[in-house]
Amino acid sequence: MEAREWLEQEVSKCVYCGFCEAVCPTLHAGGHRGYGPRGRINIIKKIVRDGEEPTPEALNSLYTCLLCGACDLQCPVGIRIAQAIREARPLVNRMAQERGLRITITPALKRT
């Protein structure tokens, strides 16, 4: 199966329950839910399924994932979340090159 097809299948399983969020280190420190697994999965959904161009903040979200896999253990429908985010990066890299997108990582942090 092609990476894009696998990715589309994987992210479409998300039922928005948010169980993954409790364990995500970047969500605890990041400025909004885009820094959590549920946010990232739905950003990928927008990119691969709906063909949307990622916004700068969507890119911040995708590239700040630690790929630590803590979320994978929480997902009740078994989405391989960290793997999905990793597999989205080559697609986004290609998209950035083809469309001349500039990716700069300036993550929003939670106010302390």
Partner: peptide, 26 residues
Amino acid sequence: GVNTYCCGGPIEGLAPRLSRRIAETR
């Protein structure tokens, strides 16, 4: 164990401030 909490290291080059906050939590 399997429920470990990341040290933040994988993004220290891309997002050092975010990485540091995670390391402080851990």
